[in-house]
Write a protein that binds this DNA or RNA. Structure first.
Lengths: 174, 174
DNA sequence: GGTACTTAGTTAGCATCCTAAATAATCGAC
DNA sequence: GTCGATTATTTAGGATGCTAACTAAGTACC
């Protein structure tokens, strides 16, 4: 019944351009839809990739692992959410959680051999996948898009109610 | 322990610009963090606002309501997700679900008087809120950002594996 | 040393979102 | 007209994300 043709985005052929606000939201949704199946091919989710990738980066920096809090900060996700993602990664053996002798409260999360292998398998094709999803823009446009979003991000971070730099839900895809 | 200064985004003062891919994800997260508390002031969530807004639009177009499928299409969210959001809106009395005489399978969702009042209360301040979050860019930049994201969106929509135009998770904020 | 504050992590409970599968009703082809 | 395919919605189960509240362990200050 009644596709609403008053709102032209419902014309099948070619939806019209919307406000930048809504374009951000739509593009994010579309990116998520592309990336999640992609990660699924490696047996992980986008959020899990976020954790594995940060742990891998930490290793490159000479760190054995990261605390849950470190992951929370790097992924811009609240600590309780990190607990859950790490739980699942631990259950499937890609990650391990060890107590720290230096701080009895903290736990250190680190890659297992299997986890490291998974990261490496993803990294082999990752740049290609990013190119694939971002391929709609030429290099100049990519640069400009990054600049504009960066400017917007600084504005948003400065806005009151930002609860000191911990955005939401973005743990995935990263 | 060890803020990682090898990756310069960890320098507290002013994070560096990242790839357009990641900037989209971050900006989305920051927008969500700003919008959800905003909607909470009206007693609704971002996803619920999406439904209420579409129903309100439908009314302006002379439609009494929308089927769950219509909502699913307009919100770019899968039907089972719409069921849940509408369930909660119905429970708090902002929306009602009626059977359609013309199609025994479908249900028509429509605003209650209370739901309509809520939409109107939000709309009074909504443009200001959008200005607030998007205020980091000047009009020219906004236009350019919208253009680039629109172009990227068309590319993403055309990509195989798009499952015929139903992106994820973007129901909120809309 | 002891008490109060802070920090790290988890638990509990809720809202979304998803996919897959079950119902139920309509459509279409014969 | 009947039967199979399609369409609308819901249910079931899982992953993420959040806030609030709890435990345990460090830190600070007297």
């Amino acid at each position: 019944m009644a596709v609403d043709r008053t709102h032209p985005q419902n014309l099948k052929s070619k939806p019209p351009q919307d406000s930048p606000f809504r374009e951000v939201i739509r593009v994010f949704g579309l990116l998520e839809r592309q990336m999640n199946p992609y990660f699924a091919r490696f047996g992980i989710s986008g959020a899990q990739w976020g954790v594995l990738r940060q742990l891998h980066r930490a290793e490159l920096d000479g760190l054995a692992g990261l605390r849950l809090t470190d992951l929370s900060e790097r992924l811009l996700v609240r600590p309780p959410s990190v607990t859950g993602v790490v739980d699942r990664l631990e259950r499937v053996g890609l990650v391990q959680r060890d107590s720290l002798s230096t701080d009895g409260r903290a736990k250190q999360v680190s890659l297992t051999t299997e986890g490291r292998a998974t990261v490496e398998r993803v990294l082999e094709v990752h740049p290609l996948q990013i190119d694939r999803v971002m391929g709609g823009l030429n290099p100049k446009e990519m640069t400009e898009l990054a600049r504009l979003l960066y400017k917007l991000r600084l504005h948003l971070t400065a806005l009151p109610g930002d609860s000191s730099a911990t955005p939401a839900s973005a743990g995935s895809l990263r």
